[in-house]
Design a protein around this nucleic acid. Structure first.
Length: 481
RNA sequence: GGCGACGUGGCCAAGUGGUAAGGCAGAGGUCUGCAAAACCUUCAUCACCGGUUCGAAUCCGGUCGUCGCCUCCA
């Protein structure tokens, strides 16, 4: 079945045909590591995580590159974000970078985001950037003025093609004080001269300096994926100027198309407004993880299409968390029954349910990675599985295994919301054993109609965050979420 | 001011020409020692106005509203 992707470059949904059949080359703009990641980052990177997981699931060999920007990203005050943070912390810039880069990976790991294949750092690719800038100067697309190098936007006729902006219109709207040494107000820096107090500096043909913000993505994408590659992703908020500049630099330097498909994620707002430091309405991934399970956070992110904006509110994520619990409850039940299921083949009825769900899921995801629709398929599957498990009598090992496997594939491998096991540690096994022992003792009390004892056990466990469910076929337990 | 996106039941959210997926919440019911879970039933005509069409949430025009970008942001 063919895969369709909405290409921001053409503003159309197109059939996805990679450059090389079966292989997908992909670049996603990564974070600038000067602070903790927030849930806006989570939306973007969970979205691309699922996109990559699905591409792999349907058989593609994906090379996923996501950069770490650790130099050159300036504040509007003209100050480097990293340097500013370093000064605040009385630390060296690269200590700041290391700290927040590790925190970024730790946060993403906690959210179940699979690591990119390559995570190149801007500061580690200065030679590549210098080389590209030289190339641009030679081809007449860039010019040097007193140690600064600027890209000439008028030299690239297609500047604005991604964001739908036109140079003439942009000129009128320019609020930024125009630097006098630029030939055109929209020209942007490829290389900046380092003032004496600027400690992140490298030598270059134009003197000591540092790279501009956009060039690192062009240089690193080229280094690892070649001049033309399949998919370029990122957050919509970077469409201009960052992504636009990337295209201009790359295509001007190489004379060939840059990324073939552009996929941009919608921004996340918090209670209706965009997060910003000045408003003080930020929610870090760490804070979110203290309140909700990672699977619930992922389910919330996947509850709307990646390209749409998403508003984070307690009410919205709670609803998503409960929806996820419904799926997880069914998975838990399947695995519980699997422990003592009788041998037997997959029933034809169950086979139909499994096959239909799988086909529907793939169909939805193949339509521009429609995760919310795919999630709905899992919910429908869950309804059918619950009927099967609760009302159709004991199921065979073959049936339960097939259902479990389906959840592992669609919910686990692709969406990342169904863990392989509830918890995996020696303590978890011990806990499981202890709870099962209590359940056994309690069921003996229940058989004697000693409801008082039974209720004490259940209530005490509940206080510890363990919920018991008495079913006709026995009592099961799960951790409260 | 310019560019772009969006406006679907109480909330979240799919659907982009043939009479509205799914989740959460609510109501009623089944099951159950109780509880929990689960299942069943029930709950919208798609911001508004006009047009195209046999037929529109879905296409076109307009109005109102929300949000994003244009300056750092995933």
């Amino acid at each position: 079945m063919s895969l369709k992707i909405y290409n921001v470059l053409t503003r159309k949904k197109e059939e996805f045909v990679p450059l090389v059949e079966g292989k997908v080359s992909m670049y996603v703009c990564g974070p600038t590591v000067y602070d903790y990641s927030h849930i806006g980052h989570a939306k973007t990177y969970v979205s691309f995580d699922v996109i990559v997981r699905f591409l792999r699931y349907i058989g593609n060999d994906v090379l996923y590159v996501q950069n770490i920007t650790d130099v050159g990203h300036m504040l509007d005050t003209g100050e480097d974000r990293i340097l500013k943070k370093a000064r605040q912390l009385s630390a060296r810039p690269m200590q700041v970078v290391e700290t927040y880069m590790r925190e970024y990976f730790a946060d993403m790991d906690a959210l179940g985001v699979e690591r990119p294949d390559i995570s190149p750092r801007a500061s580690g690719h200065i030679p590549e950037q210098i080389e590209m800038i030289q190339d641009l100067i030679e081809k007449g697309h860039a010019y040097e003025v007193d140690g600064n190098v600027y890209f000439s936007v008028v030299s690239f006729a297609e500047y604005g093609k991604l964001s739908g902006r036109r140079v003439e219109e942009l000129e009128e709207g320019t609020r930024e004080a125009v630097r006098e040494d630029k030939r055109h107000p929209l020209d942007f820096a490829l290389w900046k001269k380092a003032e004496p107090e600027h400690i992140m500096r490298w030598s270059s043909p134009w003197g000591e300096g540092f790279p501009g913000w956009h060039i690192e993505c062009s240089a690193m994408a080229n280094r690892y994926l070649g001049t033309t590659f399949d998919i370029h992703g990122g957050g919509i908020d970077n469409i201009f100027p960052h992504n636009e500049c990337e295209i201009a630099q790359s295509e001007a330097a190489h004379g060939e198309p840059f990324a073939r498909y552009w996929m941009l994620t919608g921004s996340l707002t918090l209670d209706g407004v965009k997060m910003s430091k000045s408003l003080g309405n930020t929610l870090t991934v760490k804070e979110a993880l203290r309140r909700w399970r990672p699977e619930a956070i992922r389910a919330f992110i996947l509850s709307s299409h990646y390209s749409n904006p998403l508003d984070f509110s307690d009410e919205a994520i709670e609803a998503a968390a409960k929806g996820w619990q419904r799926i997880w409850g069914a998975v838990t039940l399947v695995r519980e029954q699997l422990r003592q299921a009788a041998d037997g083949a997959l029933s034809s009825e169950a086979a139909l349910i499994v096959d239909n769900a799988k086909a529907a899921f793939i169909e939805k995801m193949s339509d521009d990675f429609n995760a919310p629709a795919a999630l709905a398929v899992l919910q429908e599957l869950t309804r059918q599985v619950n009927v099967l498990l609760n009302e159709q009598g004991p199921q065979t090992k073959g049936t339960l295994t097939a259902v479990d496997q389906l959840y592992r594939e669609l919910g686990g491998a692709v969406l990342g919301i169904v863990p392989d096991q509830a918890e995996s540690s020696a303590n978890a096994e011990r806990e499981d054993g202890l709870v099962r022992l209590l359940i056994q003792l309690r069921s003996e009390a229940r058989q004697k109609k000693d409801w008082a004892t039974a209720d004490v056990v259940r209530n005490q466990l509940k206080a510890l965050g363990i919920v018991l469910e008495d079913r006709a076929d026995g009592t099961i337990w799960k951790a409260e979420t």
